[in-house]
C-alpha cells in the first residue's frame, strides 16, 4: 500500500475545496454522524422532493478522508431517488470493506475511495458520511426501509 493510493488527487482536491459545504435552508432532515474513535462530527442536511434527493449539504470538521468522502457523496447522490442513493451506499460500503468488490469502474469519481480499503484504521473515516446519509434517508422515508446492513 502506498500513501498516494489513499490520498489521491481527487481526495486532496475535495478535502481542500469541499463541495456542497454549509447549512441548508428547508432541509427535510438534519442528521449528525459521530465517530467515537476520533471524535469527528459531521452534520448532513438533506432536502427530499418527490422521493429524490433535491439538495444535500454537509458541515463539520474531519480528516481529509472523511471530508472528501462527504463531498464526493453529496455530488454523487444529488438528484438521485431514495432507492438509488441507498443502493450507492451499499456499493460504497462494499468498496470500503470487501476485497472482492468489483464495480469500481461504474462508480466514477467515487472510485477514488477504493484506496481506503488498504488502510483499515481509516475505513470508518470514509464510511461515516454514508452511514449518516442512510439514516437521513430512513428518517425521511414515508414507509420503513429494508434494514441497512453496515458491518
Amino acid at each position: 500500500m502506498e500513501l498516494k493510493d489513499l490520498y489521491r488527487d481527487v481526495i486532496l482536491d475535495h478535502n481542500r475545496n469541499p463541495r456542497n459545504f454549509g447549512p441548508l435552508a428547508d432541509a427535510s432532515a438534519d442528521v449528525e454522524g459521530y465517530n467515537p474513535l476520533c471524535g469527528d462530527r459531521l452534520k448532513l442536511h438533506l432536502r427530499m422532493a418527490d422521493d429524490r434527493v433535491a439538495d444535500i449539504r454537509f458541515e463539520g470538521e474531519g480528516c481529509a478522508i472523511s471530508t472528501a468522502s462527504a463531498s464526493l457523496m453529496t455530488e454523487a447522490v444529488k438528484g438521485r431517488t431514495r432507492a438509488e442513493a441507498l443502493d450507492l451506499f451499499q456499493r460504497i460500503h462494499a468498496l470500503l470493506t470487501d476485497d472482492a468488490a468489483t464495480d469500481v469502474e461504474t462508480l466514477g469519481k467515487l472510485a477514488a475511495l477504493s484506496g481506503v480499503r488498504e488502510f483499515p484504521a481509516r475505513v470508518k473515516c470514509a464510511s461515516l458520511c454514508w452511514h449518516t446519509l442512510a439514516s437521513a434517508l430512513e428518517s425521511t422515508s414515508p414507509e420503513p426501509l429494508p434494514a441497512v446492513s453496515t458491518e
Binding site: 500513501l3 489513499l6 490520498y7 476520533c38 471524535g39 480528516c63 478522508i65 484504521a121 473515516c125
Partner: peptide, 19 residues
C-alpha cells in the same frame, strides 16, 4: 487533520497517537 498526520507518519515508520 491529526488523523491524516497519523497515517502519513505511520507510513514513514513513526508511531504517534492522534485523536
Amino acid at each position: 487533520h491529526p488523523h491524516d498526520i497519523g497515517t502519513i507518519l505511520d507510513q514513514e515508520g513513526v508511531a504517534i497517537r492522534t485523536g
